[in-house]
Design a protein around this nucleic acid. Structure first.
Length: 286
DNA sequence: CGTGCCCCCTGTCAGC
DNA sequence: TGCTGACAGGGGGCAC
């Protein structure tokens, strides 16, 4: 579920309260959430201090140092899957305990960071610095970074004949884009989701570049899109759902008032949403 | 190597 | 009031 804007919102919510905190003890309720056996996971992190609260693509990344270190030498990469949440509960927090706690990190000061995940598609992985680099290098560029230019997008797209929506979902090509924002960006760019990546015109690539960045930034400002599961680190909902123009809006009129209705099609095992008039069908002949 | 399909899991909703 | 099937924001593995 969480895509870049949701992961970024969670990161921002955790940064101040979690920075500098110590992990005293870890309770693993669902070992299938961990990439490593629980004892190894626990001994890697217990006693360490949170040095950085970062993000890469859809992943929230906590950097840890041991007592003396200046920089993080160990990273906890949290992939939230479809229903993962990172919930911070301080000692005086009297709210309901979460319904599906998966892994709990007891912090100094009596607080807890809880990884909560109903469907348990998420994964928590501890990586030492070289392995973290390698993992990070395997992901595509951050779409909101300066390095992500229209030119770079063009170069990437030109190397693939996949449908552009599938291309956008591939984390090795761009990091952080999921099904909601891929569909929204393609609507913004007036490009049909099924268009072969290497058949977008230069103008369309520029439109897509701009639309992607605009949608992601606006969604971060709205603190993400909550349908059911997603929550910020403080438990609130994101408000971008009310601003979606095609995703989940099958049968409703196109927001450009072109007169057509939003359609849903399924390919690559997931729904694509589009306006059939504003995003005209690619020509498949030739 | 790239691509398409299935599966992991729980919950919700529409239709009967 | 059930029951059943479709579907949900992700991604890893496998066959081709």
């Amino acid at each position: 579920m969480p895509e870049l804007p949701e992961a970024e919102t969670i990161r921002r919510g955790l940064e101040a309260p979690l920075g500098g905190r110590t992990i005293l003890r870890i309770y693993v309720r669902f070992p299938d959430l961990l990439a490593a056996p629980p004892p190894a996971f626990r001994s890697a992190l217990e006693g360490r201090h949170v040095h950085t609260v970062g993000r890469r693509g859809k992943n929230v990344v906590l950097g840890f140092s041991d007592s003396g270190g200046q920089g993080p030498d160990l990273r906890l990469v949290v992939n939230l899957g479809m229903s993962g949440r990172l919930v911070l509960r301080e000692r005086d927090d009297a709210s309901e305990p979460p319904s599906h706690p998966g892994v709990e990190f007891e912090l100094d000061g009596g607080g807890r960071l809880i990884y909560h995940d109903i469907r348990r598609f998420g994964r928590l992985r501890v990586l030492e610095e070289p392995a973290f680099r390698e993992w990070s290098d395997g992901l595509g560029p951050e779409p909101l970074s300066r390095r992500f230019t229209a030119k770079r997008l063009m170069a990437g797209l030109s190397r693939s004949g996949s449908p552009v929506r599938s291309w956008l979902l591939d984390q090795r090509r761009i990091a952080g884009v999921g099904n909601i924002y891929a569909n929204e960006a393609l609507f913004g760019a007036r490009v049909h989701p099924r268009t072969a990546a290497n058949r977008l015109s230069e103008v369309e690539v520029r439109q897509l570049h701009r639309a992607l960045r605009r949608v992601l930034r606006a969604a971060i400002q709205a603190q993400g899109t909550t349908f059911q599961d997603y929550r910020t680190a403080l438990g609130s909902r994101g408000s971008y759902a009310s601003r979606l123009r095609v995703y989940g809006r099958e049968g409703r009129p196109c927001s450009r008032r072109c007169g057509a209705g939003v359609e849903r099609l399924v390919f690559g095992n997931r729904s694509a949403f589009l306006c059939p008039r504003c995003q005209s069908e690619p020509d498949l002949r030739e």
